[in-house]
Design a protein around this nucleic acid. Structure first.
Lengths: 201, 201
DNA sequence: ACAAAAGTGTTATACGTACACCCATGC
DNA sequence: GCATGGGTGTACGTATAACACTTTTGT
């Protein structure tokens, strides 16, 4: 974060630098400030225990991170490293095993937050093509939740939010029955983002 | 926040200094980092516009705040100012109109977060006496939500979470029919705190 | 006796879940 | 024609909302 920008603006900037995308859903979820968090990493612990590398001072530094997660259509983006990154690439969640510092905890907290927010926030805009099919939207939810959902119940639930416009067109060219195309009803989508989808108390 | 403590520990410490309480529900909800946020305050704006007080440099400083909210039984606490506070006192929400910086926005964001969390987190432990009545718990929810709830539906919903133990005793001495006393089932309460109360997807 | 608070119950409706059936398309 | 994916519908259980009746207690 630079001196003249808010943390949100900074997060947007970094996202822009690495993906080229702008106006992306970006959500602050937690601050990580544990003094020893750099050293809590098992890899770092192994290094310290082994006494191998004497140059561990870096891990004595104090880091304070504000976690953000963004929702990005990865097929549209070629990730590019910025000035402080050597490598910037897409990974499947199940490929991610070791990360520096406590970044694995951060990732898990982000996932947890995202899954919670799914209960009262609509999702999918700018993650899908402008016109998309119901199965495509469902795959998106299933990917994030890492579990399968019932086709018919998913459709009913999503449609009940009235954030979608059903189009006359169908998506042809697929191997089976042509599914209808939908687009987001932006007005209602925005409203749902602000007011939430779940009634609660 | 000192150099050797996390932001959570620091928040706990400050809460402890001002209330004397420990082990209180304390939840991080947002980071506020807008560069101009000190100046965005209408009172400060008036000052600047009037040109009255030339000593406005303080508002040029960059503040970054991590917002926490705590749930405290105010009847048990005599708030006491700490080293950086002149005054520390309880206020009703409707008495709060002007605050320095953007602290009014922070307060509102805290309330919004709390009300959302009410949908999937139990609430009441250490806000009520060890034994309490259903109406007392309901008042608590009604106060936070700033709206009335149906007695019978409230009871059913809360009981369905099975975070309460119903006791044989009744609270006598009141002017009317003696209500039953309840206590929290701490084991289930903790579970509910971790796993959430609402099923969702 | 009465008002006010509290216990308990009922009913209609909405929602989530788990299914079954039919239709279109490529092989 | 058959496997597969997709559109649509139904039955069941549970949760929510709205509402009524009875019991207790102090005045």
């Amino acid at each position: 974060m630079c001196e003249d920008e808010s943390i949100e603006v900074a997060a947007n900037r970094v996202l822009q630098e690495r993906t080229g995308l702008d106006d992306i859903f970006l959500k602050q979820f937690n601050v990580f400030s544990e003094p020893e968090r750099a050293k809590r990493n098992p890899i770092v612990q192994d290094l310290i225990d082994s006494g191998a590398n004497p140059d561990l001072k870096w891990f004595d530094q104090r880091f304070i991170s504000v976690g953000f997660y963004a929702l990005v259509d990865f097929s549209k983006v070629e990730p590019t490293p910025d000035s402080i990154s050597d490598l910037c690439a897409w990974k499947n969640l199940d490929e991610v095993d070791s990360l520096i510092l406590d970044h694995l905890q951060i990732l898990n907290k982000a996932l947890e937050t995202l899954r919670l927010q799914l209960n009262y926030q609509p999702l999918g805009y700018n993650l899908l093509a402008e016109k998309f099919t119901m199965p495509e939207l469902q795959r998106l939810y299933e990917t994030i939740l890492a579990k399968e959902l019932d086709r018919r119940n998913f459709q009913r639930k999503i449609l009940s939010y009235s954030i979608l416009n059903k189009l006359e067109e169908r998506k042809t060219g697929g191997a089976h029955k042509a599914p209808y195309l939908y687009e987001f009803n932006l007005e209602n989508y925005q409203k749902a983002l602000q007011n939430g989808l779940y009634g609660g108390w």
